[in-house]
């Protein structure tokens, strides 16, 4: 069971994902400004962390781009096919003065992101690892969600 109310923001997110995919596929000059920055521009308005989702027959793999996050604050929660990632990225200089910054391009603060997984997973066997600023989550698929080969009987 998923949360099936109509959420206009999710529709926008889906649309943006489709557009992103379109720009990634056409590998020409115009993709350059889109792929060049991982966070800029509009860092505040974007979903954080950015995610890559992939799957094979047994597992769903999530990769989240989250450099500089306090590992103690990182929290991964799974409820059926909903996954939620939350945490906090501390400011570079905790009590820095505004006039001390020559450049301030990195975002900081608390974040939470919830999204729907492509399949139901075994909640107890989820494995998460945070290394080099990348959060990698491996979620084994629930038996019911795995593809099954059905033998066709010839008569």
């Amino acid at each position: 069971m998923t949360l099936n109310y109509w959420d206009p923001m999710r529709e926008f997110a889906n649309l943006r994902r489709e557009l992103d995919r379109f720009f990634e596929r056409t590998d020409n000059y115009w993709t350059f400004p889109f792929t060049r920055f991982s966070f800029l521009p509009g860092r505040a308005a974007r979903a954080y962390p950015l995610l890559n989702i992939s799957e094979d027959a047994d597992n769903v793999y999530i990769e989240a781009l989250a450099p500089g996050v306090d590992p103690q604050s990182l929290k991964v929660e799974v409820i059926r096919d909903q996954l939620s990632i939350s945490g906090e990225k501390p400011a570079a200089v905790p009590d820095g003065k505004a006039e001390g910054y020559h450049r301030n391009e990195r975002a900081a603060g608390r974040f939470v992101r919830t999204f729907t997984l492509p399949a139901e997973v075994e909640q107890d066997k989820v494995d998460a690892e945070y290394r080099d600023g990348l959060l990698t989550i491996t979620l084994p698929k629930a038996e019911a969600a795995k593809p099954r080969q059905i033998t066709v009987n010839m008569k």
Partner: peptide, 20 residues
């Protein structure tokens, strides 16, 4: 993306480079 902060004793550069 970088933050560059100036202290009395010098500058500190912070650069986000996930995956490295």
């Amino acid at each position: 993306p970088v933050d560059i902060y100036e202290h009395d004793h010098g500058l500190t550069v912070f650069a986000d480079m996930p995956g490295v």
